[in-house]
Design a protein around this nucleic acid. Sequence first.
DNA 1: AGTATAGGTGAACGACCGTTCACCATGCAA
DNA 2: TTGCATGGTGAACGGTCGTTCACCTATACT
Lengths: 190, 190
Amino acid sequence: MINDHKAALDRFYGSHKRMPTYAEMATLFGFKSKNAVAKVVDKLVDAGAVVKDHLGRLAPTSLFGEVKMLGLIEAGIPAAHEEETLDTTTLDEWLIRDREASFILRVKGDSMEEAGIIEGDFVLVERTEKAKLGDIVVAEVDGSWTLKYLRQNSQGYYLEPGNKKYRNIYPETDMRVGAVVRSVIRRYGK
Amino acid sequence: MINDHKAALDRFYGSHKRMPTYAEMATLFGFKSKNAVAKVVDKLVDAGAVVKDHLGRLAPTSLFGEVKMLGLIEAGIPAAHEEETLDTTTLDEWLIRDREASFILRVKGDSMEEAGIIEGDFVLVERTEKAKLGDIVVAEVDGSWTLKYLRQNSQGYYLEPGNKKYRNIYPETDMRVGAVVRSVIRRYGK
DNA sequence: AGTATAGGTGAACGACCGTTCACCATGCAA
DNA sequence: TTGCATGGTGAACGGTCGTTCACCTATACT
């Protein structure tokens, strides 16, 4: 019942990137009076489905547009009705530290296979100067870009692939670290 | 200059989940008059940084809260000033089909190693009845949950691990597919 | 039957919204 | 030096906001 209303708000927020006004909600819920909306909103606030600003305006709570975080695989999937008390987050907040500096690249080749990064995977990278040793970096060596571990020896920095089939890369002229890999994302299906 | 304003709006939207009012923007930008704000907003609209609703209200454009999608690794990282014409998306929109049915689980063990899913990875799963053969599923077999390929032979469904160290699992009593893996997500660093 | 109660309508309210106007200050170009 | 964009202030405007009031049903409970 009230879940329908919450779902409607969720959909509206998803497509408009803001909460509807009371007048819009009246249309949305099929009411002719804003008062009917106000009563529904009160219930939604009580239920914690939405919150109100310092001045009246609605804002989605953490329940909106978020994904539930569970424990280990072994714990399994909860039944639909026992989904209380789950931690939730948006993927963006969870994965992205510095939005302006972040990019997604698609991985080609098998040179990082043993690190669990395979052809077709996406990597979320962050353009930064502060790559640490051992990080997986997107680097430009002698004119072309690759994805490798950043290592260092007495000669200086070099790149190590995550696949024994390939050799380490010692830069001939110069090497530039463009970005550090923060996450790997693999999509299945379509 | 105007990028500062855009960034301020981005921050506000990120924390409040809505666009600020003109009065709030005046404070935000350090103006004393809403008119100064209106002029800035006009420029932002012209620049495509925000859009206006059917009635005045601001909404973030696709440029807000999104991540740039690039091509293959080999293409490398673009310089900061040549970031035009990139496809962008939010991770949530990109990865999540059915939000209500989606969960994130943490992977334990190495039984899907050859599928590029290693211990500590997260899987974004979707609770569904329509698992297809070959999908990686979260299934309950004889009381405990595992992550495996869904297969079928003349005896019926069974599970196949993505690691030759382990054997196929033929359910003794019953097997229940709880969810299908839609994405794998691996995070580096803290 | 009588009567709370929940859920809806319709109209009115003050407050604040986004917009606009007149005006002022600065800096650059003619 | 004059002229004129540019970028700001402050005040005013109608419109819509969220809220509230009185009132009208149904349904459920004595």
